[in-house]
């Protein structure tokens, strides 16, 4: 009995998780006229009108490109700056290490809305309103604490003995970090990158506040602004939502191979 239940539960969870996505898929292929009648489980005939409108008149390529640039830049910068920072916090003994870690965490505790006005003023002073950099910079205020906290844990899991072996072999700490620690931390780095990318891809409030026109809007903002004064183009919204999940799904698929751990097996006796 319990065996059957245990096997059915994951199936139920997967169905529950995928159901909205399926409804979106069906909806995005159904003409507006029939959209508010009961949507059939299998749509017939398939209509590509919403996708044509999305990439034609709506110009959905633009927010898609903006989101991609901003999310990729945020992820790369967060890893590039966060990794050495996290390594120092994980491995070096210095005064105030615990305080630094606590402060980093405190930054990510601030409600997002409370930092919007000051950030807006900063960005206006810097002339970065309505630019890609004007989104990447504020995103880093949230992405960096996330990255640092994750990577501190990741780096601590790399056996210290292996690093010490590298140093006995003549590697400086920096070389040991690059040649030994980073490759061994690759699965953790991939996970962190994935989360940072997801966070940046989904972010809405900053993107809405710090961009002015449709040529700088990111995907979530663009979709939210689809609604006209009198109607919401649900078909296009559903189509856009599906398109927006595609890059994320791709990133997960690519990262998945690295997420499978076990890379450190055999270095030290397990």
């Amino acid at each position: 009995m319990t065996g059957t239940a245990a096997r059915l539960l994951p199936v139920a969870v997967v169905i529950a998780a995928l159901a909205p996505l399926y409804v979106a898929l069906v909806g995005s292929l159904t003409p507006d006229a029939r959209l508010f009648q009961s949507v059939p489980l299998v749509p017939t005939p398939l209509v590509w009108d919403h996708y044509r409108a999305l990439f034609g008149t709506r110009g959905f390529w633009v927010p898609l490109g903006n989101s991609l640039v901003v999310a990729v830049a945020t992820t790369l910068l967060a890893l590039l700056l966060g990794a050495p920072c996290a390594y120092a916090l994980a491995r070096l003994r210095f005064r105030g290490r615990a305080i630094v870690l606590a402060l980093v965490l405190a930054v990510s505790m601030l409600p997002q809305i409370s930092v919007v006005p000051p950030l807006f003023l900063f960005l206006r002073e810097l002339g970065l309103i309505d630019t890609h950099a004007g989104l990447v910079l504020p995103y880093l205020t949230f992405a960096m604490p996330l990255t640092i906290w994750f990577l501190v844990t990741v780096f601590r899991q790399v056996p210290l003995e292996i690093e010490e072996a590298a140093m006995m072999d003549g590697a400086s700490r920096l070389v040991a970090f690059r040649r030994i620690v980073l490759p061994l931390a690759a699965p953790g780095l991939a996970t962190t990158a994935l989360l940072t990318f997801l966070f940046s891809w989904n972010e809405f409030l900053f993107a809405l506040t710090f961009t002015l026109g449709p040529e700088r809007h990111t995907v979530p903002v663009a979709i939210a602004l689809f609604r006209g004064q009198y109607q919401v183009p649900w078909g296009e919204v559903l189509a856009a939502a599906l398109v927006a999940t595609l890059p994320v799904a791709l990133v997960v698929l690519v990262a998945q191979r690295r997420l499978v751990s076990g890379l450190t097996a055999g270095g030290v006796k397990g």
């Binding site: 590298a166 003549g170 061994l184 030290v268």
Partner: peptide, 18 residues
């Protein structure tokens, strides 16, 4: 340590697994 030119054999071997 990297400038002392000594070699160390560790208790848990500490080989580079990658």
């Amino acid at each position: 340590p990297q400038a002392r030119d000594l070699a160390m054999v560790f208790q848990h071997y500490a080989l580079y697994p990658h």
